[in-house]
């Protein structure tokens, strides 16, 4: 094979095959890196249909099996069934696991060597981490879109504003979870270890988040723990939004969606969302620092 015929570029003078670009700004370099890392997450996800299915399975089990099974014990009267109450928790769960898995893929990348290709590139580690977090969050929130699509099965109304609100809140949750997963992944060599560590951390967080029960009338120790759990601040806004769009007697609503209070002070919605946003930013910043040390 004649290679010369293919390459009509003359590099005798070691000139580049394209005119040397003016020194690009750091921002442009980072932007391009973020975008391509994000895009790869999308390509990988689109090719992996199995993941979409398995990501939906758990929340659907949770919603319909648990919801219908326990529904025989728990009666809210004619206006509401348990599935509707559990829906926000199920949606959060679906996004949670997909987001963790997305973050875990960086450990796969390490095991299969591809991480090296990213780490040696002349781009900042921060841009790689941001790209991975944004990509993972977008992938995880497509799972959220599927959950929104099946909302009707839980008697949650298809209301445009409600759907957008839920999507936005799930996206933010996904970003926080992926970032958290990334900071864990920075120090882990094997995928199994990553899964073991994150399951160990996430299961208690999920059970304490109020995804499965109202935050009112809890024993004191649980009251404290639910307030500490960041996930609580992601589930509550979704439940608030859902109940805004339901016809439920005020007394029942007050019992089921009491909101979060800190020592008697009622936390406003904006602050709840703020807590999740701050978590996302904090985790991402720590993850970026951690990846700077990785070699």
């Amino acid at each position: 094979m004649s290679a010369e015929a293919v390459l009509d570029v003359d590099r005798a003078d070691l000139a580049h095959p394209w005119p040397a670009p003016a020194r690009r700004s750091r921002l442009a370099v980072s932007g391009r890196a973020i975008w391509v890392v994000l895009k790869r997450e999308g390509i990988r996800f689109a090719a992996d249909r199995l993941r979409v299915v398995t990501g939906l399975l758990q929340p659907i089990l949770f919603l319909f099996v648990l919801g219908s099974g326990l529904g025989t014990l728990v009666k809210f009267g004619p206006h509401l069934n348990l599935r509707t109450f559990l829906y926000p928790g199920a949606a959060a769960m679906s996004v949670l696991f997909t987001a963790l898995f997305s973050a875990g893929s960086v450990v796969w990348d390490r095991e299969f060597g591809f991480l090296r290709e990213m780490l040696v590139a002349p781009v900042s580690r921060t841009s790689l981490v941001v790209g991975k977090c944004l990509g993972g969050a977008l992938v995880a929130s497509t799972q959220g879109v599927l959950m929104i699509a099946i909302a009707g099965l839980a008697n949650v109304p298809y209301d445009g504003v409600l759907m957008l609100t839920i999507f936005g809140e799930l996206l933010l949750l996904a970003l926080a979870v992926v970032s958290f997963g990334m900071l864990v992944a920075a120090r882990i060599q094997q995928f199994q270890s990553f899964m073991a560590v994150t399951q160990m951390l996430v299961m208690p967080l999920f059970f304490l988040s109020g995804a499965m029960y109202p935050l009112s009338n809890l024993p004191a120790w649980m009251r404290v723990l639910t307030r500490i759990d960041p996930l609580t601040y992601a589930v509550d806004p979704i439940r608030r939004a859902v109940f805004e769009h339901l016809q439920v007697p005020p007394a029942l609503r007050a019992r089921l969606v009491p909101g979060i209070s800190w020592d008697g002070w009622h936390v406003p919605l904006g602050l709840e969302i703020g807590v999740v946003a701050v978590m996302a930013a904090l985790f991402m910043a720590i993850a970026a620092l951690e990846f700077r040390k990785v070699d």
Binding site: W18, R32, E117, P122
Partner: peptide, 12 residues
Amino acid sequence: FHAELYGVPRSA
């Protein structure tokens, strides 16, 4: 992926 990370001009 590599071309993007190494900043190969899009047109090239």
